[in-house]
Nucleic acid binder design. Structure first.
Lengths: 219, 219
DNA sequence: TGTACATCAGTGAACGCGCGTTCACTGATGTAC
DNA sequence: TGTACATCAGTGAACGCGCGTTCACTGATGTAC
């Protein structure tokens, strides 16, 4: 850290400008959507000419890739922090919700409708797996209750995504199910599909959570 | 029907061209995303000049609105057909999945990341409610099992979205939960977030379904 | 059946706009001796 | 400490492109008498 953290003034400046470019990019995504992201518009916002940004990013695609990478990285770090402080699945879930509501477009950029034609590089899919693994580890061994479901039986033979991980099918199934349920509530909430319905999405989120990890009292 | 169906050749032609424009628009959405939809590009695909399309749509916005309306209308009709033939909730769910997989971009256009800056007119939100109501009606009265959950208690006081509907909170909660769960699986599947994981999303979908309406044997 | 007129689909030119990206350049900042 | 040089951030002009949209128009199709 001491060596990589050692920055010349020029490096520090570069890092600052890169950061500001990304901040403006997020602002643009928030107001006009990911596909409306424009280098020229960002430059204008920063009081620079368009071509100046090419000192910092090879092009539009590299910027988008970096935004997506940052988003995954941010969620992975959030999860690791919860894990490190001894948080359980419930804590992870609430951290996820907070993270998503904190910047809806960041969540939707990675878990919403995919950017057409975009294909994530390998290191990004690796971070995505990292996030799933954290959730899986926090789940630990689920209580044995009842016989294996058909989906769990299927998972016993189809677990490429966690090759080498010691989790049993029941745990895989529960972690996967929790993921899809939380995403179901979150994504509809963020997309505004609950507006006008009148109820509080937080309660639906919590209901899904307790339904799959047991009520707070039972923990 | 006899009178409104009576078309002059010119009206018939207009309807045909309008339909083809929309078909090309869907093709474009499928390959480049909703925000890349371009009137000029569609015209070129049809061998026409750009301005010609203004005979059929007032502009880009009207075309998008019509596509969204058609999508909602299509799903609502699908649901009504299932309802009319006596299908239960399970049948509705499978119809939903088929409808979504049949044209992923159509599903994502209405239930995915919202088109930035777009606000649906009232008649479209009405169709959206129609869809939810169909699901709710098919649910009927849920079996009374156990005490009211906190979310159900909340729903008793927050049910603007179904004002006037006789459904009890338990039914509202279940229908809402089914919706978010199915959407969770479907949207992640359509966005490609399961690719490379190795398991069959259909089994996860079915698992969520049977978990909330009971296994096929119990029906 | 034929003629006069109205309707309307589609064209081509034009408008102003913003985009991503390249290029040769200026001028400030940092480095080596 | 001062000078000579290298690095590099940022500019402005230019490229070709496609966009939505308007406008005056041509020519075919339909309608009324």
């Amino acid at each position: 850290m001491a060596e990589t953290g050692m920055q010349t003034p020029r490096e520090r400046y570069r890092a600052q400008v890169r950061t500001e470019i990304k901040e403006r990019a997020w602002e643009q995504i928030a107001t006009a959507g990911a596909s409306a992201l424009s280098l020229n518009a960002i430059a204008k916002l920063m009081g620079m000419s368009g071509p100046a940004l090419y000192r910092y990013f090879a092009g539009r695609d590299e910027l988008i890739t970096e935004l997506i990478r940052d988003a995954y990285r941010s969620l992975a770090d959030t999860f690791h922090a919860v894990e490190a402080s001894g948080g359980d699945v419930t804590a992870l879930a609430h951290a996820l919700r907070r993270w998503a509501l904190d910047d809806p477009h960041r969540y939707l950029l990675i878990y919403g409708t995919p950017v057409p034609g975009y294909h994530a590089p390998d290191d990004i899919t690796a971070i995505s797996r990292e996030i799933m693994t954290t959730l899986l580890d926090a789940y630990g061994a689920p209580p044995e209750d009842g016989p294996q479901t058909p989906f769990e039986a299927h998972l016993a033979d189809h677990r490429q995504w966690v090759a080498g991980h010691p989790a049993v099918p029941a745990a895989l199934g529960r972690a996967l199910t929790l993921w899809t349920r939380l995403h179901g509530v979150l994504s509809l909430e963020l997309a505004g599909h609950f507006t006008g319905m009148g109820f509080d999405p937080a309660l639906l989120f919590t209901a899904e959570l307790t339904g799959l990890v047991g009520p707070p009292a039972a923990r």
